[in-house]
Design a protein around this nucleic acid. Structure first.
Length: 319
DNA sequence: ACCTGTCAAGTCTGG
DNA sequence: CCAGACTTGACAGGT
């Protein structure tokens, strides 16, 4: 089976290359002239897009095809203070350009809207804000010219005292989404409320590809073995053009197991590899570690010593 | 150059 | 009913 590795949003190796630079609402408000505010926003966004291009070039140098875009690419894009900023128009050329690069190099791009973006809140205002944020993410992908293989990773959301009712609310609101957004959403098990079993059930009934987070499963499961779910999880990707995606991180320490460690625990991942080998199906691994791409490169280096692992390129293995 | 409090956004707990 | 924790990168104001 072939496994492609990637990382999240920013590089620990490239200096001064943040794709998430922003301005606070308070400070933007201090700028009096409307055109000066727009200039500031455009300037920040263009800088973020330029740094995203640098990240893309960096990824190419390391054969990295799997990458998650930061959600903060366009500063304050969905905040009322920017309502007069037509950023898709202003940034059309920049977005198209990095999108073309991503397509030319067969990148597998995703994004992960923040934890404020909830489809199962009982509050209508929260749902409206979530919809706006999903539209923002969708617009970035559209402007980049990326089809529905560019995905948006979501969690089911809060519990609100009743898991069953909250799952029903998720499904109802999911069904109401515009198709272009619906087709991009993939669902991930979380570390506190919705287990692999819960999320899988939703994904199967709604035909949503499921992202398996093996660290979250470690934090939140009812003594279930991940191996029992792998086949069904991968099956939710059967109609997709990209292989299934899993998230990989390691607990920071025994006291705070839910936090992400700097790097990836090799033994833990190799145990997973052995279980996955029984299915022998290709998948992508998104590394979620504090050390970002440095953690990815460290893991790849360590994998060179693991029996049964061979390298197709710097960031792709066969096992 | 470095440190600290704060930031658009939500949920949950505990007082 | 409200404050604080949760979690994250980066801003902004301080030293």
């Amino acid at each position: 089976m072939i496994i492609n590795f990637g990382y999240v949003a920013m590089s620990a190796l490239l200096q001064n290359c943040s794709p998430s630079k922003t301005i606070t609402v308070k400070n933007l408000s201090k700028v009096e002239a409307a055109d000066a505010r727009l200039f500031r926003l455009n300037d920040l966004a263009k800088n973020n897009l330029q740094n995203t291009r640098r990240l893309f070039l960096h990824n190419t140098a390391y054969d990295i095809k799997v990458f998650r875009l930061t959600s903060k690419l366009i500063p304050l894009a969905t905040h009322p203070i920017s309502c007069n900023w037509n950023w898709p128009k202003e940034l059309a050329a920049d977005l198209k350009s990095i999108g073309d690069y991503a397509k030319t190099h067969n990148f597998r791009i995703s994004a992960h809207p923040d934890h404020f973006t909830l489809l199962n809140s009982p509050k209508e205002t929260v749902i409206e804000a979530a919809l706006l944020d999903l539209e923002y993410h969708n617009q970035i992908f559209l402007s980049m010219g990326l089809d529905s293989s560019a995905k948006l990773v979501l969690h089911v959301g809060g519990c609100y005292k009743s898991k069953d009712e909250s799952i029903d609310r998720f499904i109802n609101n999911f069904k109401k989404l515009p198709s272009p957004i619906k087709n991009r959403i993939i669902l991930e098990n979380d570390d506190k409320v919705y287990t692999v079993k819960d999320v899988l059930k939703i994904c199967q009934s709604q035909k949503i590809p499921m992202v398996l987070d093996i660290h979250h499963h470690y934090c939140n499961n009812i003594d279930d073995d991940i191996a029992d779910y792998l086949s069904a999880v991968f099956e939710t990707w059967v109609n997709e053009s990209s292989p299934p995606k899993i998230h990989l991180s390691s607990p920071k320490d025994p006291k705070s197991i839910r936090s992400h460690a700097d790097n990836i625990n090799l033994t833990f991942f190799v145990e997973f590899l052995k279980k996955a080998k029984r299915l022998n199906s290709d998948f992508d691994v998104m590394i979620e570690a504090k050390n970002k791409d440095a953690a990815l490169l460290k893991l790849l280096k360590e994998l060179k010593e693991v029996p049964g692992v061979s390298f197709i390129n710097q960031a792709t293995i066969e096992y």
